[in-house]
């Protein structure tokens, strides 16, 4: 009797999440795989959902990857974009969270708000402000500052000159800022939740800020750091939105400003709304993402971190 009550309780805790998993992930994933074998386009489910297209969508995707002259640039860009942005996201978020810990709450709120702005801004507006910031003429904010300071003498097209590094720097910078706030919020909330006794104890022992970080804070929030890293990795692999407008407004060079996710998005979701192809490339992307995510968890020690709960009575 007690057992059934306990299991009922367990279900009560899990049912909402399981429902969401099934309805909004499991079913759509099955449908996506299904759609990847249909010629679905323009949202016309009535017409195309029952037509079987075989491997055609996958074939088209690989054909494009194989034959498109800019695709090498796209892969190179992804190989640079994802790890560098990830490093900026995680380290930046961690650094902000730790410094936050040591400054007063007022400045804390101020800094946090500033760093949240990129995440809060509608994507088009966010792209617009950086468009003006990096604009390659005298109207560009960065150019005008550097010219005033006498560092450069003519306007520089940041995203178009010094290829590929110029384009990479711009997209990494713009995307990096969005991700930092994620790490910052998660990690500083985690730091705040560390039982204060641990910190008092360390302070009493005369630990400096740096020692406190290394010995107490970082080890205590390892779980969160690992989580942020994996989560951001997957986010970056699939993110295109913050780059899309910068490329289409020609602020950055197209070949070296296009990460893989954006390439796939453009293939599938602009112009012809080829949702069959979108689904195929999505399935492909998901597989790669899942493998990378799993590897990251392995490397960061997922098993060690998932301790058995003591909550069983």
């Amino acid at each position: 009797m007690k057992d059934s009550k306990r299991s009922l309780e367990l279900w009560a805790f899990l049912v909402p999440a399981l429902l969401i998993l099934v309805v909004f992930y499991f079913l759509p994933t099955i449908l996506t795989i299904f759609i990847s074998f249909t010629p679905l386009r323009n949202w016309n489910i009535d017409r195309y959902a029952r037509i079987f297209a075989g491997w055609r969508n996958y074939y088209r995707l690989f054909y494009a990857i194989q034959n498109d002259p800019s695709v090498r640039a796209v892969f190179l860009t992804t190989a640079v974009f994802v790890p560098v942005t990830l490093a900026i996201n995680v380290l930046g978020g961690l650094a902000l969270a730790l410094i936050n810990f040591f400054v007063g709450k007022r400045s804390n709120a101020l800094i946090n708000t500033i760093w949240l702005l990129p995440r809060m801004t509608p994507i088009a507006v966010y792209s617009l402000v950086w468009y003006y910031f990096f604009h390659g003429s005298e109207i560009g904010t960065l150019n005008s500052i550097l010219i005033k300071l006498g560092i450069i003498h003519r306007a520089v097209s940041w995203g178009q000159e010094f290829l590929p590094y110029g384009a990479w720097s711009v997209i990494i910078f713009v995307n990096g800022l969005v991700g930092v706030s994620f790490g910052m919020i998660v990690l500083s909330s985690a730091v705040k939740s560390i039982p204060t006794e641990h910190i008092i104890a360390a302070r009493v022992d005369g630990a400096t800020d740096w020692q406190l970080c290394r010995r107490i804070l970082i080890p205590q929030i390892r779980w969160h750091i690992m989580y942020v890293a994996t989560w951001q990795l997957l986010s970056l692999l699939t993110s295109y939105a913050h780059t899309y407008l910068l490329v289409s407004w020609r602020l950055v060079d197209k070949s070296y400003g296009t990460p893989w996710a954006l390439y796939v998005y453009e293939l599938a979701f602009t112009g012809v709304f080829d949702q069959g192809l979108a689904a195929a490339s999505g399935v492909f992307l998901v597989i790669v993402g899942a493998i990378l995510g799993w590897l990251t968890l392995k490397i960061l020690g997922f098993n060690k971190l998932v301790t058995e709960p003591r909550g069983d009575l």
Binding site: Y59, R60, Y63, A64, Q66, N67, D68, P69, S70, V71, L267, V272, D274
Partner: peptide, 12 residues
């Protein structure tokens, strides 16, 4: 050449 290459890379 670039344009032709791009066209030939996309089956559609």
């Amino acid at each position: 050449e670039f344009v032709i290459g791009k066209i030939n890379a996309d089956l559609d």
